[in-house]
Design a protein around this nucleic acid. Sequence first.
DNA 1: CGTGCAGTTGACGACACTCAACCCTGGTGG
DNA 2: CCACCAGGGTTGAGTGTCGTCAACTGCACG
Lengths: 234, 234
Amino acid sequence: MINQLGAAVPELLNLEIFKSFSKEKILALCKDGTVVTSDHRQVLYKSGETADFFGIVLGGAYKLSRSSMTGEDVIVHFSIAGDVLAAFIMAQAHPVYPVTATAIGPSRFLKLPRENYLKLWKQDSDLIFKIQNLLSLRMALLQDQKAMSKAPLAQKIASLLLILLERNKSTDDMRLPLPLTRKEIADMLGASVESVIRIMSYWSKHGYIQTNDAYIQIIKLDKIIELINKNSEE
Amino acid sequence: MINQLGAAVPELLNLEIFKSFSKEKILALCKDGTVVTSDHRQVLYKSGETADFFGIVLGGAYKLSRSSMTGEDVIVHFSIAGDVLAAFIMAQAHPVYPVTATAIGPSRFLKLPRENYLKLWKQDSDLIFKIQNLLSLRMALLQDQKAMSKAPLAQKIASLLLILLERNKSTDDMRLPLPLTRKEIADMLGASVESVIRIMSYWSKHGYIQTNDAYIQIIKLDKIIELINKNSEE
DNA sequence: CGTGCAGTTGACGACACTCAACCCTGGTGG
DNA sequence: CCACCAGGGTTGAGTGTCGTCAACTGCACG
């Protein structure tokens, strides 16, 4: 499923990274770009493949994962609309995707050839800085998670939910911006599905959270926050 | 302990990041830089402080850490000579150090004002790319560790030792490039000191490794590698 | 109507954490 | 000169969180 650019431009104008850019400039930067539509669980690129494109998530969500030596998936990051993928490695001589990108639910992605980065993006130091900031933000997220490595699982889950919730701009509904399975939460935290289920089922029963469809909604935010700060009162 | 620049230039010429740069260019980029000498356990900058300088590790080593809510230290990265610190966040509007940098053993650091980055480094797209590559390397390291989150502790330690050993250019001696305490290993892996000691003591007894001074030397590399691939045969 | 995915629950066991001692060394001050 | 202390390393006993295994439900989809 591939559509040409053009129609996507108004969408691009709203993205954080292109704010303050003119329509003409955006069109130039995204020259030869294509809009890719991904189905649920469809793979955008695989870890280890030669990286000949990068791009921007337009809608839906993608999970970035690798598999450990023992074969389990480990999720490194959840990317939602506005997130830039693989731009960081374009500068390398022979870039290879470090992770696998898989769609979560139907999603859309603006696919840009590597050349654009090397020839066009590189010239614009504002753009480079924005990307550098995105990268260091992602780094900070990884570090945050590492800082919780000794915390009990309940705190890790609570913390993850809060972080994802913060990305949801519409503050009125307390719904996570992407559909998550318990397995994906487990893979993100390096835990087992069963353990995640045990904790989240408990929360559901006590009305802290609620899961409609595949979306998770937080009902008692204070309870979740409390969980993070206090010791694990289950 | 602060010395002026100048004497450090020949040293800088050898660093990965400045390779292929002329002496004049380096002097320009490092304008107003000072060489800071740190004692063991001395703090270079603290997490949360306003980031008004960045720089390059010249000698010795620094650990980058944060403290979790429960007060324990969590080490995010070990930086040795040639590593660039805090450059990644200089592009932000009001940068704040995300981690605390503490010297491990007597160390030296080339301290550069933030202005240099904004006014000089920014102009050089090669330099920016090198830094971006450094950052994505560090990111990859964090991801590697995350991928091992479910592995038994012995594998994590073995993997950490190997990663650190790879940074040691002199391949003849199998000594880690920096002095590490068991506590620091534990903080790096999110484990307890005692657990680390139990595993490493076992390795010492069986001649896999050896610890002179505070330095760790690997005797039977094959055994360590074996540990990583196979299941935990203790 | 079978297959596959998501969610759930229970029993069991193990790895690693906590707590509590203890040793050794080097530095520092009385 | 010696006593004291801090930092690093070590060991043992007890405990708990969480992973593994296994079985079962509900649902969607072709």
